[in-house]
Design a binder for these strands. Structure first.
Length: 126
RNA sequence: CGAGCCGGCCGGGCGGUCGCGACGGGUCCCUCCGGGGCCCCGCCGAGGAAAGUCCGGACUCCACAGGGCAGGGCGGUGGGCAACACCCACCCGGGGCGACCCGCGGGAAAGUGCCACAGAAAACAGACCGCCGGAGCUUCGAGCGCCGGUAAGGGUGAAACGGUGGUGUAAGAGACCACCAGCGUUCGGGGUGACCCGAGCGGCUCGGCAAACCCCGCCCGGAGCAAGGCCAGACAGGAAGCGCACAGCGUCAGCUGGGGAGGGCGGCCCGCCCGAGCUUCCGGGUAGGCCGCACGAGGCCGCCGGCAACGGCGGUCCUAGAUGGAUGGCCGCCCCCGUCGCUCCGGCGGCGGGACAGAAUCCGGCUUACAGGCCGGCUCGUCCA
């Protein structure tokens, strides 16, 4: 899992463009089966979270299940996200077979990494 | 009891708890009075295939002078249906002792084309072996080559120009005869019909593939809910090319005629119609809301008609509507299956597993995927009465 986070960014585009932009530019963190990216902020006082589950993960039933489990997990962690930040959670194929508790651990790890990376001053990526 | 055939149905259940979406109601707050937000209560919330998107429709917009040529689909008969490539019944052909199953079921004596391999020969047939006759040569039994006859026998093949018996003959041959099969045809009978049954006559027999082209009959406008409609909001234009800007009348609005880039008749051509704008490039703006959108060829129950598909009448029910795309997480009990351990052989306990698969405008079908299970009808065999 990979998580992308973006903390301060001037303008929002379409939802689809937004997800693509955050995943491309946001600070990342990985946790096993799902990366997380964060980017950020907007006049909005709430965080925005998007999910990317590709067809490599499985058929429609499997993809729906993965996205719903990830959404349930992220919903419980909304307090951790700075207001106005934007997050993309990208599920890797292994997510489909992982138990819910393991998925939670991986999300915590990836989200933590991504948030730390995003809070560092925007320097050249080491 | 054992084998087997056909049809229908289900496709985890109950409960708790934290969440998500729709609808109804309520408190409070905001409001540009249309509504919106928060919380609480009630209630509903994926499938038999929601799938593949292969057919048929509903619905929406566009088109709807005419003619011609293309193109696509279907194909026994009768019925069902809104319609179909679907369903039912029947017919024909093939398979099975049988229940039943199978057939992409028009035309091959309109035409063209193709028929691999094997085989001598594969479609106006064809002599490889064999059989028979003739004259000749040779070591007389017999053999050898030559000329001719022959499709009865061998062998090849998915298929070899009817089968059996006889007459006949040098050997043979529908050459001729009888019966049978098949083809054509006449009459009688049955059926709405495909077709079936019976009797007679004819010439003696004429292969297969149309899912090869083709011919015949019937049907078919195009696009699709990102259809289509309404509302709100934003913006900035520029360049090039083609075309109009003609004539007459006029009360100066227009009318008539000609010309006219481009457009429409959604495959093309003729033809017809519209016509003052059209095309390309650069630059700029938007990524919202509402309707369509869930009461329908609708589900269930009963009665009636029909062999059935289905139809008629009556009663009853309202049952998902997301759009940044709602159904998720955890726990307990029960039900199946596998495995391991213990066993007082009754069981008990631990662990693991329970398929295929997710609505997107809606119906009717087809096809494909699928753990496990339930119900009904029927056939054959064996045993007992």
């Amino acid at each position: 899992m990979v998580v992308h986070v973006r903390l301060a960014e001037p303008e929002a585009g379409t939802p689809v463009a937004e997800v693509a932009a955050v995943a491309a530019d946001g600070a990342g963190g990985t946790g096993g089966s799902a990366p997380v990216s964060t980017a950020s902020s907007q006049p909005a006082s709430f965080p925005l979270v998007g999910f990317a589950v590709s067809r490599a993960v499985g058929n429609a039933v499997v993809r729906n299940g993965v996205r719903r489990r990830l959404r349930a997990l992220v919903r419980d962690r909304l307090d951790l996200l700075p207001a106005g930040s934007r997050v993309v959670v990208r599920a890797l194929p292994a997510s489909a077979a992982v138990r819910f508790s393991v998925l939670a651990d991986e999300l915590d790890r990836a989200l933590g990494q991504a948030l730390r990376a995003a809070r560092r001053p925007a320097q050249s990526p080491a």
